[in-house]
């Protein structure tokens, strides 16, 4: 059980951490993104107080992880806290960990938030063949059902009439989409 002093200190640390943005999508914090897993107060080998922070990487190859580690240590050092950051791989990070507030911020920023990862994980992701691609894709009843299941809403005009421009976008986590109503391009945060 935390003592009152520790609770106050932890709250102070949490407040600092909650302000650290994701380096690649600075509108959302690492807390809202679900990277920040655990915060504890401990002592180092020399007996001085240290904040133990556990983070889970979004992607194995995410180049932002080193930056995030440095940002955490740097932000806490500014207010005199010593931090130790450890990386935990299991359970693997999933877009389902992005908080409701985080999703809202992504949406406002112009990134369509991810669909639930559970569904996408069960179904092998497949593409339409040439014959049912494009406009013909909207013809059959099954095609329409598939389209509705896969509908990604435009973060600007909320239209479901959108199309994927590229499965891979400016960062590992995003795909490139285009709205066929307002004609604006936008990013979709891929479910992982």
């Amino acid at each position: 059980m935390n003592t009152l002093a520790e609770t106050r200190s932890l709250a102070e640390v949490e407040a600092i951490l909650s302000l650290i943005p994701d380096p690649e999508i600075p509108v959302i914090s690492i807390r809202e993104l679900g990277i920040l897993q655990d915060v504890q107060l401990g002592t180092d080998d020399a007996g001085s107080q240290v904040v133990e922070i556990t983070i889970t990487p979004t992607y194995g190859g995410c180049p932002a992880m080193d930056q995030i580690r440095d940002d955490i240590v740097g932000a806490l050092a500014q207010t005199g806290w010593k931090a130790r950051v450890t990386t935990r791989l299991a359970p693997a990070w999933t877009t389902d960990w992005i908080s409701a507030q985080g999703r809202e911020k992504l949406h406002t920023y112009g990134i369509a938030p991810p669909h639930a990862a559970g569904g996408a994980q069960q179904a092998t992701i497949q593409f339409a063949t040439k014959r049912i691609a494009g406009h013909a894709y909207l013809t059959g009843p099954k095609a329409i059902k598939d389209q509705q299941n896969a509908a990604i809403h435009c973060p600007r005009c909320d239209s479901a009439n959108t199309t994927e421009t590229s499965h891979f976008g400016s960062t590992s986590c995003k795909a490139l989409y285009r709205c066929l109503d307002c004609m604006e391009p936008f990013d979709y945060f891929k479910p992982y």
Binding site: P57, Y59, G60, L89, A90, P91, A92, W93, T94, A117, A120, Q121, T124, I125, Q126, F127, T129, K130, H167, F168, K190, Y192
Partner: peptide, 28 residues
């Protein structure tokens, strides 16, 4: 096992990408 759980999520997108092009080029 932890690394595999991470990678299993990534490979689905890799397979989807190459399979899509395989079909487009084969049936092109």
């Amino acid at each position: 096992a932890a690394i595999a759980a991470r990678a299993a999520k990534e490979v689905r997108y890799h397979l989807r990408h190459s399979r899509d092009w395989l079909v487009r080029m084969g049936d092109g």
